[in-house]
């Protein structure tokens, strides 16, 4: 079938050549191209692989994005816990009693401390610049002890809480007015260990 069709075509081509050229040449008959089914299969396979890879990449990206979001959320949760742990409490002049409005600040620390038994805190008591410089060292220690007692009364192990006094030696603010003094009459809380991957406490 094929050869019978090729022949008249070849004759037509020869006639055309004869009409144009003085020395007609016989054109070589082109060899029919073999059909490569392996390449086609490969092409299909490649396309499928690309789709699969794109899908996998997309999934990985989504997973990474989710992980990143999770990690941000986790970091935010850690930061929030750390903020709760280090939130300061304040005192009235020459007093070391826990003020009712500051009780919630200590309450927020308790579930975190209880959920993370490796967590340790240093509590530093501070005073304002009024009062005797030397007597204030004792007052600062009493203020640190107030916070520690509240936390140990709520189940935090004594050994995890260290108290020190700075007296009036480390003011946050040096203006000579009550708005400044009231900031300086404080307990500072510093996390001293066990704060990697803190677990949320049940109360959080």
């Amino acid at each position: 079938m094929q050869s019978s069709r090729i022949l008249p075509a070849a004759l037509l081509a020869l006639a055309a050549l004869a009409a144009c050229h003085k020395k007609p040449e016989v054109a070589p008959t082109p060899a029919p191209a073999p059909i490569d089914s392996t390449a086609i299969k490969q092409h299909i396979a490649d396309s499928l692989a690309m789709v699969a890879k794109a899908r996998a990449d997309s999934l990985a990206r989504a997973a990474a994005e989710k992980a990143r979001e999770d990690s941000i959320a986790a970091a935010a949760a850690q930061a929030k816990m750390r903020a709760a742990l280090t939130a300061m409490i304040h005192f009235d002049f020459n007093k070391s009693d826990l003020r009712p409005e500051d009780q919630a600040i200590l309450d927020a620390k308790i579930p975190i401390l209880l959920a993370n038994p490796g967590l340790t805190l240093r509590i530093a008591g501070n005073t304002d610049e009024r009062g005797s410089t030397e007597y204030n060292l004792a007052l600062g220690q009493r203020r640190a002890a107030t916070a520690k007692r509240y936390l140990t009364d709520h189940g935090v192990a004594d050994s995890r809480l260290e108290t020190v006094s700075n007296g009036e030696e480390k003011p946050l603010c040096t203006e000579q007015e009550e708005s400044c003094w009231s900031q300086n009459r404080r307990d500072e809380f510093t996390v001293t260990g066990g704060d990697t991957g803190m677990l949320k406490g049940s109360g959080n």
Partner: peptide, 8 residues
Amino acid sequence: TLAGENGS
């Protein structure tokens, strides 16, 4: 002066 857990 020794200031501890319970006054000084």
